[in-house]
Nucleic acid binder design. Structure first.
Lengths: 240, 240
DNA sequence: CGTGTTATTGAAGAACGTCAAGCGGGGTGG
DNA sequence: CCACCCCGCTTGACGTTCTTCAATAACACG
C-alpha cells in the first residue's frame, strides 16, 4: 500500500519540482495522438510528484497551470468560510485539473494518496490545443462526462437518503474500478472525505456502513476495503 | 406577462413543428461567426415553439437532437423511480440542451414559460462543429462554465442550510438577470421548481421566504416577484 | 509501547420533512 | 357579474432523519 505522509492541513507541493522521467505519460491523457504530436507534447510538459495531503491547486489562487493526473487519487473540494467542505469529486489518472476559464481556481485539489501529475502552463496548454485540434474534442467529451456526473451527484445530494447516498457511492466506485460483487473495492479516502462527498457527517457515514454490514449488503475488510456481498440489494438500496 | 397553458404533466411538443422565421437566431448562440458561416448555419437549423409545461427532451429517450434555447426559460431535471425530483438547472436563451455524449438523454428539459428553441440533429450538429471549429471552443467554454455552476450547486446541496440555499439562489438569479438591490427580480418558476432545485420541500421554501421577509432581507411583490431590500444581509445569509 | 489520529457507538437536539388545513387569485360557467 | 372551483402558496402541528456532542475503540506511527 502507498504510504501517506503526515500532513494535518493541506499545503502547496513545491512548484519547482520536476520529474523528467515521467514526461512521456501525458499520452495516456491526450489519447490517440500521432507520434509527431506525442513528441512535441513531451517537450512542453513537466511532471511532479504529489505527497498525500498536499494540494496541487488551491481555491482562490490565480489559475496559472493545468494538470493531468498521472498516478494516485486526488479529491476536489470547495470550502465555506466557516470550514464546511464539499468534496465535488475524486480524480483518477487521466483526469484534468485546473481547467478554470476564469482568473483563479474555483476549487482545491488535494492528493488523497501519493501520486504524480503532469503540469502545463495555461499558455502551453492553449498552444497545445491549437496545435492538436483533436485535443479540444477529447477535452469537450471529458468535461461533458464530468458535467453528467455532477448532475447525478446533485440528485444524490438534493434528494437521496444517507443509505441511498452511500450505496450509490459504493456502486459507482465498484463500477469505476471494474469490480464486480465479491471482489474487494478499495476506498483510498477516509470517512471524512466520503462524508464531505456525500453531504453527510462522518458519524452518519460510519453508522450507515454498520447498518449495511448488519443488513448483509456488504462486509468491510478493513477501513479501506469493502466487499459487496449482495449486489441486488445494494442496488435496491441505492434508489435508482 | 407570458401566458402559460394548463398542462399538469409534461408531454413532448410536436416534433414536426418548424418555424422558418426564427432560423436566423442561432447566431446569438454560436457567437462571433463570419457572415458566410452564419448563412450556412441558418440552412441547417430549424426552430420550434415550446409551450409552458411541455418537454423538449425527456430523460431516457434516445438522444437524437441538440437544441439551443432562443426564448423563454427551461428547467432541467432528473427523476427517481418514486417521483423524487432534482432540478439541476434553469436554461436561458443562448444555452444548449441535449449535449449527451451517450445514447440517450440523461435529464428532462421542460419549459417553465412559453419559449422557442432551435433544433439540430446530432449529425447536423457534428457537421457544424467540423465546419466551424470556433464552435467547439465556445462549446467547451460553455460546458466548463456549467460544470463550475454544478460544483457550486453541489456545495449548496451538500452543505448549506435552507436559508443559505434560498439566499444563494436569489443572489445568483439577481446577478444573472443583472438586477441590483431595490430592483425587482422575477422568478418565472413556481415554488415546487425552486424547492426541487434547492433540495428542499415547497413548505420549507415558503417558510424561508416568509422568514426572510420578516427579517427584512427582501419583500415579495407577488408570487413571482422579489425585491432585495438589504443586499448585505442577504449576502451574509448566503454563507459565502 | 505510548500517542495522535481516525473510526465507531451512544444519547440528545435541531433542522427539515410530512401531513393537514386554510388562504388567495385567476379562470370558468351559470 | 358573481359564485364557484381549482391550483399553488402559506401556515401550523408533529415526526423523522440526520447532526451534534461526547465517550470509547481501533489503528498507524514513532
Amino acid at each position: 500500500m502507498i504510504r501517506s505522509e503526515d500532513r494535518p492541513v493541506c499545503h502547496r507541493s513545491s512548484p519547482g519540482h520536476h520529474c523528467e522521467g515521467c514526461s512521456v505519460r501525458p499520452l495516456a491523457v491526450c489519447g490517440a495522438l500521432g507520434p509527431g504530436e506525442l513528441e512535441r507534447l513531451s517537450r512542453v510538459s513537466s511532471s511532479q510528484r504529489i505527497a498525500a495531503g498536499s494540494c496541487l491547486i488551491e481555491e482562490g489562487e490565480p489559475a496559472e497551470c493545468v494538470f493531468t493526473v498521472l498516478e494516485g487519487i486526488l479529491k476536489l473540494y470547495k470550502l465555506m468560510p466557516d470550514g464546511r467542505r464539499q468534496v465535488t469529486g475524486f480524480l483518477i489518472p487521466g483526469d484534468f485539473v485546473g481547467l478554470a476559464f476564469g482568473e483563479s481556481y474555483i476549487y482545491t485539489a488535494e492528493a488523497v494518496v501519493e501520486g504524480a501529475a503532469c503540469r502545463f502552463t495555461r499558455n502551453q496548454f492553449h498552444r497545445m490545443m491549437e496545435e492538436f485540434p483533436a485535443l479540444e474534442g477529447r477535452l469537450l467529451s471529458k468535461v461533458s462526462t464530468e458535467l453528467a456526473a455532477a448532475q447525478e451527484q446533485m440528485l444524490l445530494l438534493g434528494r437521496k437518503t444517507a443509505r441511498e447516498r452511500l450505496a450509490t457511492f459504493l456502486l459507482g466506485l465498484a463500477r469505476r474500478m471494474n469490480r464486480s460483487a465479491g471482489e474487494q473495492v478499495r476506498l483510498p479516502m477516509g470517512r471524512a472525505d466520503i462524508a464531505d462527498f456525500l453531504g453527510l457527517t462522518v458519524e452518519t457515514v460510519s453508522r450507515t456502513f454498520t447498518a449495511m454490514r448488519k443488513a448483509g449488503y456488504l462486509s468491510t475488510v478493513d477501513k479501506h476495503g469493502v466487499v459487496i456481498t449482495d449486489l441486488d440489494r445494494l442496488r435496491e438500496a441505492a434508489g435508482d
